Simulated scan of single mutants.
Amino acid sequence: MHQPTHPPIGSKTAKPARQASLRNLSTALHGALLLFCGWGTAMAAPGDATPTTNRGAEIFKHTCSVCHGDKGTGAMWGKLQPPARNFTSPESAAKLTRERMINSVTYGRGGTAMQPFGAQLSHGDIEAVVDYIRETFIANAGISDMSLPLPNSLKGNRIKGSSLYQLNCSACHGQSGNGKGPRAYFINPKPRNFTLDVSRRWLNRPTLFRVISEGSHGTEMPAWGKVLNDQEIADVAEFVFQRFTRPKQLLK
């Protein structure tokens, strides 16, 4: 009887078979990682089985903490780029509205490791975990050090910064820095309101310089470092800092 033979390891017919096996292995490993990270349906169950009062905490523990950490500091996966959100930072307190967080959990965040959970979690579960994060981590976020200077020994000129702000920034952020410029109606998420308490807790000079220079991921805030030089960015940062985020009445 004729015995079936397998092609030699080095033959052309063996190569596609090995490639298929590698693809299957890669798919299996990827699926296992998704489940481990809480990105598969298997990890969504705890949110359905726990009492309402504990639901958000349980969902966070089983689905979110693997990347964001048990304490919400986002330090679990150091190689993620961009890193997982640190919910305890002043930046998170300033940026993360409840609506934005619900949207991020439901649909994910493009360009990040944040996956959509809308197919795994009910809307009630998503609201529960968002409220847990806000009450446990964001509500206790710290305040930035407002005494820190601009980077690279730069000194901002508020007068020059005012002119640059009116020319480049006011169309979105508004003349009074309240985020209600003429273009704001067409932008989502809305431009930063510099006069809010959360902005005043977060936006010190180095943070303003960085955001103006690099832009803000997931928003229409562009990287002005491609248009303005460092001194001009320092001037705008100094104007925004003195005029909106730390006006004289706050410094008394």
Score class of each variant (00 low, 15 high):
residue 141 A to W: 07
residue 179 G to K: 00
residue 69 G to W: 03
residue 207 T to R: 15
residue 59 I to Q: 09
residue 31 G to H: 09
residue 92 S to K: 03
residue 8 P to F: 01
residue 67 C to T: 01
residue 179 G to H: 03
residue 137 F to P: 01
residue 225 G to L: 01
residue 128 A to P: 11
residue 91 E to R: 08
residue 139 A to L: 11
residue 69 G to L: 03
residue 32 A to R: 04
residue 238 E to K: 11
residue 50 T to C: 09
residue 29 L to M: 12
residue 158 R to A: 15
residue 120 Q to L: 13
residue 119 A to E: 12
residue 238 E to W: 00
residue 22 L to S: 06
residue 26 S to Y: 12
residue 91 E to H: 08
residue 153 S to I: 02
residue 168 N to I: 12
residue 142 G to P: 04
residue 82 P to S: 12
residue 224 W to H: 07
residue 139 A to G: 04
residue 164 L to C: 10
residue 65 S to Q: 15
residue 234 A to K: 00
residue 236 V to I: 07
residue 244 F to I: 06
residue 58 E to R: 10
residue 55 R to I: 05
residue 130 V to S: 07
residue 144 S to N: 01
residue 236 V to H: 05
residue 226 K to D: 11
residue 75 A to D: 15
residue 32 A to H: 05
residue 95 K to E: 10
residue 249 Q to Y: 15
residue 200 R to N: 02
residue 249 Q to C: 04
residue 76 M to S: 13
residue 29 L to Q: 10
residue 16 P to W: 08
residue 159 I to E: 15
residue 20 A to D: 09
residue 99 E to I: 09
residue 173 H to T: 03
residue 161 G to S: 08
residue 216 S to Y: 06
residue 103 N to S: 12
residue 66 V to N: 10
residue 175 Q to Y: 13
residue 53 T to Y: 00
residue 63 T to Y: 04
residue 121 L to W: 09
residue 121 L to R: 00
residue 196 L to N: 05
residue 146 M to E: 06
residue 219 T to R: 02
residue 88 T to W: 02
